[in-house]
Design a binder for these strands. Structure first.
Length: 409
DNA sequence: GTTGAGCGTT
């Protein structure tokens, strides 16, 4: 058997990884020792340049057909983080995973304590001294049109946003407060990445595909289906747009590629000067609480039922099924509310998502790798992690949802 | 016509 010498970084002590019979090295073999890695490179002796190793469908190929991996010491390639050149280029980015992983960018900011007389124009005018203002809006009473005394503003650069957040603001004669809105706290958090992963685990676990449809909130009547289609087409092919009538301030956009849909979830987008919010097209927790099981119709035309309803709230549990596999149950059906209730953390460590460093578990890699759900420490009733509860209602398939090694993205 | 802590959408 051929071994390949690999170190995490150039100059580090290498370890030997076994190659396959055909001479290739499995990416999974590499990732077992170097969680989060996505490829290999090596220093070419002649040119002194670093060369990349060919990679295809989970296999890494030796540089030479004849001499195989040779005596080179290879070092790992990890996904680049925060590679985006500037916040302003966000909308042009086509790298889906980058969109998910890089969340250090502008969000809508709430402006509290505005004078009643302040208009969207004067609000914009005030904040333009800090930088480009992409959106400025005042929340008003729908009937009277009177300002509610607060609004939202969105900047074009993260610098401007930071300056605004660290200053006091005298707007139209009144001291106002500018903050990141409550509902944004979670969305600015990197763990949205893992929420998406969890959604995928569950959906894949029951044999259904990841939803292609997203919910678009905060729409105005001015935004029609053509506007939505045109705007969202830059992220991927839009297969359907649905705007409920009569007007209800939201709509649904369906993409051909579910990954595109998921990559947009949690984001704010400005369409015709209006900040809309994209989120998972899941029904609200209250509406999904049914012993009959709830049908979730996604673009695939498939639907699945969830029951195992617990009146205490929405919880996720993980517990053993037959043949030693683990099953993930989400009680109540709304992941985002569950994450919100848990403050974005998994209280029981029953879902492990270690980074690429400091993880000793070969089944447990960081972003871009695999995620392991384990019930070994899952016995905390208070946090909703109760072993031995009923699981999915997917009785016909009888399948266990093995999520020990689930690949994503 | 008033007011002064909050938090935009299923």
């Amino acid at each position: 058997m051929d071994f390949v010498q690999v170190s995490e970084e150039e100059g580090d002590e290498p370890i030997e990884l076994p190659a396959e019979e055909d001479g290739t090295l499995l990416l999974s073999t590499l990732q077992a020792q170097f969680p989060g890695s996505c490829g290999l490179k090596y220093r070419n002796m002649d040119t002194k340049a670093v060369r990349g190793v060919r990679s295809n469908e989970g296999r890494l190929f030796p540089p030479s057909v004849d001499s195989g991996w040779g005596e080179y010491i290879y070092f790992c390639v990890f996904p680049k983080e925060n590679k985006r050149k500037s916040d302003d280029n966000l909308e042009n980015s086509t790298a889906k995973t980058k969109r998910i992983e890089t969340r250090l960018r502008c969000t809508d900011l709430i402006v509290l304590g505005l004078p009643w007389k302040t208009t969207e124009d004067s609000l914009r005018e005030y904040f333009e001294s800090y930088g480009e203002v992409l959106m400025a809006q005042i929340k008003k009473d729908v009937k009277s049109g009177q300002s509610k005394g607060f609004g939202f503003v969105r900047f074009g650069s993260y610098d401007a946003q930071m300056r605004v957040l660290s200053n006091r603001h005298l707007i139209d004669g009144r001291w106002c407060e500018v903050k990141v809105p409550n509902s944004k706290v979670m969305h600015t958090h990197i763990q949205v990445y893992y929420v998406i992963k969890l959604i995928k685990i569950v959906l894949q676990g029951v044999g259904h595909q990841v939803p292609c449809k997203v919910f678009v909130g905060r729409c105005t009547e001015d935004i029609n289906s053509d506007d939505l289609r045109e705007y969202f087409s830059k992220f991927g092919e839009v297969t359907d747009v649905f705007i409920p009538r009569p007007f209800r301030a939201f709509s649904f956009v369906t993409f051909f590629d579910p990954d595109v849909a998921q990559s947009l979830c949690g984001e704010d987008h400005i369409i015709k000067g209006v900040s809309v919010h994209v989120s998972n097209a899941a029904p609200k927790a209250e509406q999904s609480r049914s012993h009959q099981g709830q049908n979730y119709n996604y673009s695939s035309g498939n639907s699945y039922g969830m029951h195992s309803y617990h009146p205490q709230g929405n919880h996720m549990t993980s517990h053993p099924g037959r043949s030693g596999h683990h099953r993930v149950t989400f009680q109540g059906g709304n992941f985002l509310s569950w994450m919100a209730q848990n403050g974005g953390h998994n209280a029981n460590n029953n879902v492990n998502y270690g980074g690429r460093k400091g993880s000793n578990n070969p089944n447990n890699s960081g972003p871009g790798g695999m995620i392991k759900v384990d019930n070994s420490s899952c016995n905390d009733q208070q946090n909703g992690c109760a072993p031995g509860n009923a699981g999915w209602s997917n009785q016909s398939s009888g399948s266990q949802n093995s999520v020990e090694k689930s690949n994503f993205l």
